[in-house]
Nucleic acid binder design. Structure first.
Length: 424
DNA sequence: TCTGGGGTCCTAGGACCC
DNA sequence: TCTGGGGTCCTAGGACCC
């Protein structure tokens, strides 16, 4: 059996842990630059607000109903997520972290401890609530896809626990699930399936494999097997290194300046390289993309990307930065108001997997020297805070600032911002 | 008149998720 | 005026090879 533990309105719930006065009110968390809604409390959803919606559309309604909009505080959310996952790992042997707010638990055919599934799931919820103050929903089923559906049904019905452990009950439940509600079926695929006469998850499980394959790809066919109760998406138990590492930002203020754009690209390259080294990889290809705003009809539009191949895979920030700046030079056009830049590292391989350059014997010691340098830089930045050491080309951080009108303290990761409890 | 039949690799773009 | 930032996988089509 698989259990999915999914936090309810995760970012909003993290904020509520430290500010209980946010309970019971419409609360939303905003993306960087306070642009879009990225998390909505149940009360906010009841007002019709949706994740992805631009904030300026939602602000009025929210204020009218005594709600609150908070700027994103990712230091807090990633730390709370790590705590949640550690708690789950204490409960079961195998935990697959699927995203910042959900994880699959491998739980065997019977509930641990010889209890009923309901008892076990309830105790798990209570432990997370007690230890972390976070509300979670638990879905249990024979496959990941079904556990996800069970969890979503439970959220919709507010039962907090969804048990799809009995095959007859599962078959019945699937009759009520429209195809677009299935995990992995988006609006496009749903339309295609409906026009072929497939409207519910149950119909999908009864359709022949070759019909599904004709209509969609192998991914969706595997999904249908999952719905039939045969685990097909088995993602394994190891943490798989990423295949691409991307860092992109929308600027707080659009820029036309080469120097500012270069500063942004260098900064994102450094950030991506840091993550590259954290997973012990090197990159062979680097892509830089820039574009102007998507929603301005009074400004000319320009969007372009350039790919650079490195002669030798690297995780050395100065090397990657030089390549990124070269790429930027090829696509930058003066006069456009750029709002966003992106740096993407691909063709990743294990660090040191490539043999040293036979024709340059000094290269090996140089490679080691650079690796040590990066180690020291990463260590200092981890110890004393991000950007303690940067390359000079990253500037003094004009391009690092966000518009954040209402960010909460980083309660769990910065000494100066710890919450203080007073005995009354 | 009549012009093969396999492969591989790479990239862009589509679709999806949180 | 005001619209995140990450990821994954798959497919089609082009370039190239013999």
């Amino acid at each position: 059996m698989k259990a999915l533990v999914d936090a309810d309105s995760f970012y909003v719930s993290c904020e509520r842990v430290f500010r209980p006065s946010l309970m019971g009110r419409p609360v939303v968390v905003l993306s960087n630059n306070d642009g879009c809604l990225i998390s909505c409390s149940r009360e906010a959803k009841a007002l019709g607000l949706r994740v992805g919606q631009p904030y300026f559309e939602a602000a009025g309604l929210l204020a009218l109903h005594g709600g609150e909009a908070l700027s994103a505080n990712f230091s807090l959310y990633t730390d709370m997520s790590a705590r949640l996952m550690r708690t789950l790992e204490e409960e079961v042997q195998q935990v697959l972290v699927y995203s910042i707010d959900e994880a699959f638990l491998e739980v065997g055919p019977r509930p641990p401890g010889g209890e009923e599934w309901a008892t076990w799931a309830c105790a798990l919820r209570q432990r997370v609530r007690r230890d972390l103050g976070l509300p979670v929903t638990v879905g249990v089923a024979p496959s990941h896809g079904l556990a996800k559906l069970a969890c979503e049904e439970a959220k919709k019905k507010r039962t907090e626990i969804g048990l799809w452990t009995d095959s007859r009950a599962v078959a019945e439940a699937l009759e009520q699930v429209p195809v677009e509600a299935i995990w992995g079926i988006g609006p496009r695929l749903a339309r295609r399936l409906r026009s072929a006469g497939l409207f519910t998850a149950a119909q999908l499980t009864r359709a022949p494999d070759d019909q599904i394959r004709r209509l969609t790809s192998v991914t969706e066919l595997q999904l249908v097997w999952e719905l039939r109760g045969h685990p097909a998406l088995d993602p394994g138990d190891v943490r798989i290194p990423r295949k691409t590492i991307l860092c992109s930002r929308t600027f707080a203020v659009p820029t036309r300046q080469w120097e500012e754009l270069r500063e942004a690209v260098a900064t994102y390259t450094a950030r991506a390289a840091e993550r590259l080294r954290a997973q012990h990889s090197e990159a062979s290809t680097l892509r830089v993309a820039i574009r102007t705003g998507l929603f301005r009809s009074d400004e000319p539009f320009h969007a372009e990307a350039a790919l650079v191949r490195l002669p030798i895979p690297s995780a050395h920030t100065p090397t990657l930065t030089a390549a990124a700046v070269r790429a930027l030079q090829a696509i930058y056009r003066p006069g456009f108001a750029y709002t966003r830049a992106e740096v993407c590292l691909t063709d990743l391989s294990d660090a040191g997997a490539h043999p040293a350059d036979l024709f340059a014997p000094e290269a090996e010691s140089e490679r080691k020297r650079r690796a040590r340098l990066m180690q020291v830089v990463d260590h200092l930045n981890a110890e004393y805070g991000r950007d303690t050491i940067t390359t000079a080309i990253c500037g003094r951080g004009v391009m690092r600032r966000f518009r954040q009108a209402n960010r909460s303290p980083r309660y769990t990761t910065v000494w100066d911002e710890l919450p203080i409890a007073r005995a009354s």
